Amino acid sequence: GTEIELESKNGQREHYTATSEDEARKIIEKAVRRGIKRIELRGASEQLIRDMQEIAKQIGLQYRTDGSL
């Protein structure tokens, strides 16, 4: 699965493990709508990382991946 670590603007951290790319995408989209400061992805697919970079650029988000592409 993909591990997703979120940090909201007030510094609250949340951790999710998505079993599918679809689920990961839903978690990320929800977080973005809620207003999130930072997202870290571990074990994400190349496609998901590309999507994440696109989203991050659009809304000026900090993100990090573990680089295991």
Score class of each variant (00 low, 15 high):
Glu7Ile: 10
Met52Ser: 02
Ser45Val: 03
Arg34Pro: 05
Lys57Phe: 07
Glu54Phe: 07
Ser8Val: 10
Gln62Trp: 04
Thr65Glu: 15
Asn10Ile: 06
Thr17Glu: 09
Ser8Asn: 13
Leu48Ala: 02
Arg25Trp: 08
Glu54Pro: 02
Lys57Ser: 07
Glu40Cys: 15
Ala18Glu: 05
Val32Cys: 10
Gln62Ala: 04
Ile4Phe: 02
Gln12Met: 12
Glu7His: 11
Ile36Leu: 08
Asp51Pro: 00
Tyr16Met: 06
Glu54Asn: 07
Lys30Phe: 09
Arg42Trp: 12
Arg33Val: 13
Asp51Leu: 14
Gln47Ala: 12
Gly43Gln: 05
Lys26His: 09
Gly67Val: 06
Asp22Gly: 08
Leu41Lys: 00
Ile59Tyr: 15
Lys37Leu: 11
Lys30Cys: 12
Glu14Phe: 06
Glu21Tyr: 13
Gln62Cys: 15
Ala44Ser: 03
Ile4Lys: 00
Ser8Thr: 14
Arg42Ala: 07
Arg42Glu: 04
Lys9Phe: 13
Asp22Val: 09
Glu23Asp: 09
His15Glu: 05
Gly43Ile: 01
Ile49Asp: 06
Ala18Val: 11
Gln53Phe: 12
Arg25Phe: 10
Leu48Met: 05
Lys37Val: 14
Leu61Gly: 05
Val32Glu: 01
Ile36Gly: 00
Ala44Arg: 01
Glu7Asp: 04
Arg38Met: 12
Arg34Thr: 12
Arg64His: 15
Leu61Gln: 02
Glu29Gln: 10
Arg38Cys: 13
Gln58Phe: 04
Gly60Met: 05
Gln12Arg: 09
His15Pro: 01
Leu61Asn: 05
Tyr63Thr: 15
Ala44Asn: 02
His15Leu: 15
Ser20Asn: 10
Ser45Glu: 02
Asp22Gln: 11
Glu3Cys: 13
Asp66Gly: 04
Tyr16Ala: 03
Val32Ala: 08
Ala56Gln: 03
Ser45Gln: 02
Lys30Leu: 12
Ala24Arg: 00
Glu21Ser: 08
Met52Arg: 00
Met52Thr: 09
Ala56Asp: 01
Leu61Trp: 04
Ser68Asp: 10
Ile49Lys: 08
Lys30Gly: 13
Ala24Met: 06
Ile59His: 15
Glu14Asp: 08
Ala24Leu: 08
Lys57His: 13
Tyr16Gly: 02
Ile27Asp: 00
Glu5His: 13
Ala31Ile: 09
Tyr16Lys: 03
Leu61Ala: 10
Leu69Cys: 14
Gln53Ser: 09
Gln47Leu: 07
Arg13Asp: 04
Glu54Tyr: 05
Glu46Val: 09
Arg25Ser: 02
Glu29Met: 10
Arg25Asp: 00
Thr2Phe: 13
Thr17Lys: 10
Gln12Val: 10
Asp66Met: 02
Glu7Asn: 03
Lys26Leu: 12
Arg42Gly: 05
Gln62Lys: 09
Tyr63Ala: 15
Gln53Ala: 11
Asp22Pro: 07
Arg33Asp: 06
Ile36Pro: 02
Gly11Pro: 00
Met52Ile: 15
Ile59Pro: 03
Gly60Phe: 10
Glu5Thr: 14
Thr19Cys: 14
Ser8Leu: 15
Glu3Ala: 07
Ile4Asn: 01
Gln12Asn: 09
Lys9Tyr: 11
Gly43Pro: 13
Glu3Met: 08
Ala24Ser: 02
Tyr16Arg: 04
Thr19Leu: 14
Ile27Trp: 07
Ser68Val: 08
Thr19Arg: 11
Thr2Val: 13
Ser20Tyr: 04
Ser8Trp: 15
Thr17Ile: 12
Gly35Asn: 10
Lys26Thr: 10
Lys57Thr: 09
Met52Tyr: 03
Gly1Lys: 12
Thr2Ser: 04
Lys30Asp: 13
Ser45His: 02
Arg50Lys: 09
Ala18Cys: 13
Glu21Lys: 02
Arg64Asn: 15
Ile49Gln: 12
Gln58Ile: 11
Lys30Ile: 12
Glu5Cys: 14
Ala31Pro: 00
Asp22Ala: 10
Glu46Leu: 06
Lys37Arg: 12
Ala56Cys: 10
Leu48Cys: 05
Glu5Val: 14
Ala56Tyr: 04
Ser8Glu: 12
Glu3Gly: 06
Ala56Ser: 04
Gly1Asp: 10
Glu7Pro: 01
Gln58Asp: 11
Leu41Glu: 00
Gly11Thr: 03
Arg38Lys: 10
Arg13Ile: 14
Arg25Thr: 02
Arg34Trp: 03
Thr19Gly: 10
Gly43Met: 05
Glu7Ser: 06
Met52Leu: 14
Gln62Asn: 05
Leu6Val: 14
Arg38Tyr: 14
Glu29Pro: 00
Gly11Met: 02
Ile4Pro: 01
Glu7Gln: 07
Ile49Tyr: 09
Lys26Ser: 13
Ser68Arg: 04
Ile39Trp: 01
Gly60Asn: 11
Gly11Leu: 02
Lys30Thr: 12
Ile39Ala: 02
Ile27Thr: 01
Tyr16Cys: 11
Asp22Glu: 14
Arg34Leu: 14
Gly35Ser: 05
Glu3Ser: 09
Glu3Thr: 08
Glu23Lys: 03
Leu41Ile: 12
Glu54Leu: 08
Ser8Met: 14
Glu54Val: 10
Gly43Asn: 11
Ile27Leu: 08
Glu14Ala: 09
Gly1Glu: 12
Asp51Trp: 14
Ile36Met: 07
Gly60Leu: 08
Ile49Cys: 11
Arg42Asn: 06
Leu61Pro: 15
Glu21Phe: 06
Gln47Trp: 02
Lys9Ala: 13
Glu29Thr: 06
Gly67Asp: 10
Arg50Ser: 11
Ile55Thr: 02
Ile36Phe: 05
Arg34Asp: 13
Met52Lys: 00
Glu3Tyr: 14
His15Val: 10
Ser20Pro: 02
Gln47Gly: 11
Leu69Pro: 07
Ala18Phe: 15
Arg25Leu: 12
Glu46Phe: 02
Glu54Gly: 05
Ser68Tyr: 11
Arg33Tyr: 06
His15Gln: 08
Ile39Phe: 02
Glu54Met: 09
Leu6Ser: 01
Ile27Lys: 01
Asp22Trp: 07
Glu14Leu: 09
Lys30Ala: 14
Ile39Asp: 00
Ile59Gln: 14
Glu3Trp: 11
